[in-house]
């Protein structure tokens, strides 16, 4: 009886395993003709591209934005048929299962992916380097004092070069294979506490270390902001799909925000939902596309 049960469990694990690896394995042969067909197609037509969806922006709106960016920057974005994913993990599963041919990431994240998973390589398409996104904080509109404080801290950090130093320390200089260590955020008694939502979805900027602590460049940045603004910062780990609800309901006060490529025709806050205010940018990164190695 017991043996039968164990056998059952093992069998179900095996089936699950076979199903998943089956997907991956089955794709590769299917991928090959698709990919070789893609190379010439890349200049003329459709490459299926995975993108992380922007909070609060419908896909139609996003298409509009991409078109505007294309007009301004001469990067042929309309060659791509875009599929939106909620987070990096789902996007990765999308490319591994063959739903998309390329995925769009930031250079720092792309480096991290390649260092940790040798199945990936960069798409050598230099025009994409013209595009860069900037990172900032988003707060509720009625929280103007908080925005002012964050801006002040960020400006001060920019002025004395500590922002660049942090970026160098936690992004550029990080040994690509290993993740930067978690940082303790100083807590002072009696000070105002603000809650910052992190998703753990975007290493090396934002991830959760093996011992379960939020870590990465964003955490280091927050620690510095806490020191300069005299506030306590509490990091809250939250699913990326619930960030908007959490921010607007007041359960958290700050989320991280990415501003679409800024060119003259496209205002920085084009995808900004109502009721949200953006801080000054603290980091800038280029777009990079990844594909699976053949």
């Amino acid at each position: 009886m017991k043996l039968k049960k164990i056998a059952k469990v093992l069998l179900s694990c095996l089936v699950a395993g076979a199903l998943f690896t089956g997907c991956g394995g089955g794709d590769k042969p299917a991928d090959k003709p698709a990919d070789t067909g893609d190379k010439p197609a890349a200049s003329t037509g459709n490459v299926k591209l995975g993108m992380i969806s922007h909070l609060n922006v419908t896909e139609q709106k996003m298409d509009e934005i991409l078109k505007m960016v294309e007009e301004e920057s001469n990067v042929p974005l309309t060659n791509f048929t875009v599929t939106y994913y909620d987070n990096l993990k789902l996007m990765q599963m999308g490319i591994e299962s063959g739903s998309v041919d390329q995925i769009s990431l930031y250079t720092s994240v792309a480096d991290y992916v390649i260092a940790n998973n040798d199945k990936y390589e960069k798409v050598s398409d230099l025009t994409l380097k013209n595009l860069s996104d900037t990172f900032c904080f988003a707060v509720r509109k009625d929280d103007a004092a908080l925005k002012a404080d964050l801006d002040k801290a960020l400006d001060a950090m920019k002025a004395d070069g500590s922002l660049d130093k942090l970026a160098k320390e936690y992004i550029t200089d990080v040994d690509k294979g290993t993740a930067p260590p978690a940082i303790e955020i100083p807590m002072t008694d009696g000070a105002q506490t603000i809650k910052v939502g992190v998703t753990g979805d975007l290493p090396p900027l934002d991830y959760v270390s093996a011992d379960g602590k939020a870590a990465g460049f964003n955490t280091a940045l927050l620690a510095e902001v806490a020191k300069r603004s005299g506030k306590n910062i509490e990091i809250v780990d939250i699913d990326s799909g619930a960030r908007a609800a959490a921010l607007s309901s007041g359960q958290i006060d700050v989320i991280f925000w990415v501003v679409v490529p800024t060119v003259s025709k496209v205002p920085a806050d084009i995808d900004k939902p109502e009721g949200v205010e953006l801080s000054n940018p603290y980091f800038k990164d280029n777009i990079e596309h990844l594909k699976l190695k053949k």
């Binding site: 993990k89 940790n116 753990g200 991830y207 959760v208 093996a210």
Partner: peptide, 9 residues
């Protein structure tokens, strides 16, 4: 979180 950190979903 582990899937995102290790890039092996």
């Amino acid at each position: 979180n582990i899937a995102s950190r290790t890039m092996q979903p």
